[in-house]
């Protein structure tokens, strides 16, 4: 079993399709939706983490591409200049993924890259401007 993050982009016509449940049914992968921007009549975007066998993930991606969904590995990442951090905690006010948390003992800021869904809210929330997001690569 493995986990991979993807960005799915689709046209207004595909928005109506039950993409997520199709994947679950057809390939036995579990889908964790990390971020979503969908509304009817508009193009949609989903950030998902797929979990399944390597083959299942490959077939899922193939299937999505066949459906007309642009599917690219989620390579956007949050870059944090932690050595300059004063541990004020402002970023934790907007981080709901658990990636940025205050250690309840030392009150240092802890950053867990794996939990980060790259929502970007901390970029604006940090008064020292220590966060940046790497550019997204389209496949």
């Amino acid at each position: 079993m493995m986990k991979k993050k993807y960005i799915l982009r689709f046209s207004p016509e595909i928005v109506k399709k039950p993409l997520v449940s199709d994947l679950v049914r057809k390939f036995d992968v579990s889908v964790n939706i990390l971020n979503a921007d969908i509304s009817s009549g508009r193009a949609g975007m989903l950030v998902v983490e797929l979990e399944g066998t390597e083959e299942a993930l490959e077939r899922s991606v193939e299937d999505l591409l066949n459906d007309g969904v642009k599917c690219s590995p989620h390579v956007k990442a949050l870059v944090f200049r932690q050595e300059e951090c004063v541990a004020c905690g402002s970023c934790t006010a907007v981080c709901f993924s658990g990636a940025l948390q205050m250690n309840p003992e030392s009150w240092e800021l802890e950053f867990d890259q794996d939990s980060c869904i790259v929502c970007g809210l901390c970029v604006e929330a940090c008064p020292l401007r220590l966060f940046t997001i790497t550019r997204e690569m389209e496949s």
Partner: peptide, 25 residues
């Protein structure tokens, strides 16, 4: 406030500091 959440109008709300306790210590 330091526990990470408080209750406001019956709703659990995430709390976050704006001043650094680590530096203050």
């Amino acid at each position: 406030l330091r526990s990470g959440s408080i209750e406001i109008n019956g709703k659990k709300v995430k709390t976050a500091p704006m001043s650094s306790l680590m530096k203050a210590r």
